[in-house]
Write a protein that binds this DNA or RNA. Structure first.
Lengths: 239, 239
DNA sequence: TGAGTTTCCGTCAACATGACGGATAGTGGG
DNA sequence: CCCACTATCCGTCATGTTGACGGAAACTCA
């Protein structure tokens, strides 16, 4: 607010993306191998600097996402996660990064193209264990907790599913993201009873082996009421 | 990620604060009257640009808060709300602002000093109705919804209270922030039963008129379990 | 046709919630 | 000194939600 002999400091603004999906019965995150210093060769979140001083932040996130994964909209869920600005998080210069959380269904792996190097899916557990560029481990941990938490009181879980899905598939999303088993019957009762969560797609089925399951489409609700709580054992809270 | 003839664009980074408290039986927010263009004379959130290109973002938020309100730690709750970066949110140049949500007990109004102009408490309802600088109305709306939501599943409400408080005072916080009445007995049962929410301060009382109430101190828990839900009628979800 | 598999439904005890009434413990006035 | 007044605190009960389980229904494959 002071307007004296002082000038507004300039900062480099980046966007990073924590792109989550469920593949091969695992929660996986999209990572790229860095081709340039710093952290050359290390795994990192896809992302990059604003294309211009006037580019909108969320637009930049969508652009990076499209560049890295080749997909735009669809069943895509994109929300701002948090901004990270530790002064020494980038050894080159001051960079603050606005991070986004994206959730996708398990697509036919369009991951390939993109501007940076090879992008690949990595199980989040492995990602959190292995060394990562910058403060990306912290970011992934935050994204994971945000996702787990939002499954409780929003309909975010449907963003992991294709356009049409069964209750069992939805339950698998919860079980995989939370890392715990759920009672199939109670889960079925809750999600089919929750207002606006699931819309029965006319009448259809799909085969798995046993009795055909009803197919659902995601409903208009974004909040889940009543909430679907995990047993116990959480972490922080956005902080 | 492209590393060609392109240079990283510079952006001005600001921090803004949504400082909430409960005063005079109302939820109020700290606003300043702008003394400079743009939006001279309009009400705005306290905040400002980073002091230097290396200042930490949260440090900057604490600095601005101290400058405007004269207080540092205490019962202070400070968390990042969201980053706003619409390209035309500031008519002068590209500015993105990292916003923080602060919650304070009703202090003896240390508001006065500060670098910018006069700061004053404004009922959030009035703040949302009246004209505000920049996109601050949107920010306040987000801060309000975040606060209301966090009262449900965290112990944030205690941040509105002084070090020692009664159950009735805590209930008033919920009622004022949510704008709805709560059953005193059920509320009492829930909060005193919730693990780690309230710690009875030895044995003390305070007078109000009737039977002396037990005094409590905030407990170690940050998450509330089970949650304390408002009746119905919410808004978005962080989006 | 029967075994195997998976979805779907019903029930019941345990727990939490919403709604009351009433006992308790102070204050202040006559 | 006693009595109205007020606010806190406690107990109960009907209702709704959760957790746990068994079993019927529907389809495939041998």
């Amino acid at each position: 607010m002071t307007e004296e002999e002082w000038t507004i400091p300039d900062v480099a603004v980046a966007v990073d993306l924590a792109v989550l999906t469920v593949r091969a019965e695992q929660l996986q995150i999209l990572l790229v191998e860095r081709g340039i210093e710093p952290f050359r060769g290390a795994l990192a979140l896809p992302g990059g600097f604003l294309a211009s001083a006037l580019e909108d932040i969320e637009k930049a996130a969508r652009r990076e996402l499209a560049e890295e994964t080749g997909l735009a909209a669809d069943g895509l869920h994109l929300e701002q996660l948090r901004t990270y600005g530790n002064p020494d998080r980038d050894p080159r210069r001051r960079v603050i990064t606005v991070c986004y959380l994206a959730v996708l269904p398990n697509l036919p792996v369009p991951v390939a193209g993109g501007d940076a190097d090879e992008a690949r899916w990595v199980p989040v557990e492995a990602a959190l264990a292995g060394p990562l560029a910058f403060d990306h481990a912290r970011i992934i941990a935050d994204a994971l907790e945000r996702t787990r938490s939002k499954l409780e009181y929003t309909t975010l879980a449907t963003a992991f599913c294709p356009a049409e899905f069964t209750v069992t598939e939805l339950r698998r999303v919860y079980e995989i993201v939370w890392g715990e088993q759920l009672e199939p019957r109670n889960f079925h009762r809750k999600v089919t009873g929750a207002e606006g969560f699931l819309v029965p797609t006319g009448e259809k089925t799909i085969r798995n082996g046993g009795r055909p399951a009803l197919l659902y489409r995601r409903g208009p609700a974004t909040l889940l009421h009543p909430a679907l709580l995990r047993s116990r054992g959480s972490l922080e809270v956005t902080a």
